[in-house]
């Protein structure tokens, strides 16, 4: 027996562990764990050769040292000055909040009805032409397009979007079972076609869970193309950089040639010849075009196409 004298003995429940693990990841592999293991074993990065130490300490080095010492004493004096005065340096930011109403007119907060506060999961973020950040609780204007997995509502007035114009800010609401989420798309140029809304030129997507910058973005917004709609997701972004904050507070960025967002499982599917995923000081590179990088709220997966 291996029991330590003062440690209680229990009975392990392998089915409890199996069910918990199945609930966590289903039948697939734990890509993050596999990557972590391989990075610490067979894929360990090669150590770069150390630069050769400089033989002499030149005048440039003395100048740098003097600048550093001056900066150090300057900062110390500043901090001591503030502590002495009993004050703490504070920077105040003001967030201007406006509401967009059903007819897409921006209104001041005090004009909104107070008896019907917006549920938190229906709050989206839009960036208007002057850069004002607005919290909105837009009501659907365009008809809801029913698809197999989720519905997408364009809450901007369709009349405004005919033809090409600059700039553009459009708000969409994606609805899945029990959850509605809003996201806003802004771009220098946008164009409505029969089957989609296309954006290019400094395209930005603001979603409560992530922010995307892209060269081009397509939102499938036609009720006649529902067949491709479920597979293409809410939108496709090309030349995309995504930034999001994970549940543990860590900021993660990823780059890909193409990105698809699927609200039904809150996944971002990245594909392309060169993909990168950076968290903290570590960057993972994915060069296999047959693989798809999937970002989920609690981590990422790499799957074969």
């Amino acid at each position: 027996m291996n029991q330590e004298s003062n440690i209680p003995t229990k009975k392990p429940d392998v089915m409890d562990a199996l069910l918990s693990e199945h609930a966590r990841l289903g039948s697939g592999e734990d890509t993050a764990l596999v990557e972590a293991i391989l990075l610490r074993t067979v894929n360990q990065p090669l150590e770069l050769p150390q630069p050769i130490a400089k033989a002499s300490f030149g005048w440039q080095d003395w100048a740098k040292m003097a600048a550093a010492v001056t900066l150090f004493f300057g900062m110390t004096a500043l901090v001591l000055h503030q502590i002495k005065g009993g004050e703490r340096a504070e920077t105040t930011f003001q967030l201007t909040v406006t509401y967009a109403t059903a007819d897409n007119q921006l209104a001041e907060p005090d004009t909104m009805p107070e008896e019907n506060p917006a549920p938190s999961n229906r709050i989206g973020i839009v960036r208007d032409v002057t850069g004002v950040v607005a919290a909105t609780d837009l009501k659907p204007i365009a008809p809801i397009m029913q698809v197999a997995e989720f519905t997408l509502v364009e809450t901007t007035s369709p009349a405004e979007l005919n033809g090409t114009f600059t700039p553009s800010i459009d708000v969409f609401e994606a609805a899945t079972a029990g959850r509605v989420e809003s996201f806003a798309v802004s771009a220098n140029h946008s164009k409505r076609t029969d089957s989609a809304l296309e954006y290019d030129g400094k395209v930005e997507v603001n979603h409560p869970e992530f922010h995307i910058q892209a060269e081009r973005l397509v939102v499938q917004a036609s009720s006649s193309s529902t067949a491709s709609y479920a597979s293409t997701g809410a939108f496709q972004a090309f030349g995309a950089i995504i930034e999001r904050t994970l549940e543990n507070g860590q900021v993660e960025t990823a780059k890909a040639d193409e990105l698809v967002y699927k609200p039904n499982d809150q996944s971002l599917e990245l594909t392309g010849a060169k993909m990168e995923l950076t968290a903290g000081s570590k960057t993972l590179h994915f060069d296999n075009e047959n693989e798809k990088l999937i970002l989920r709220p609690n981590g990422f997966q790499v799957v074969r196409k």
Binding site: P12, A17, S20, L33, L38, T41
Partner: peptide, 19 residues
């Protein structure tokens, strides 16, 4: 080694989780 990691890590997680 990579294949072995992929083939066995999930069952080993269950094992370690039960423990």
């Amino acid at each position: 080694f990579g294949d072995l990691v992929r083939a066995h890590h999930r069952e080993l997680i269950v094992y370690a989780r039960a423990l």
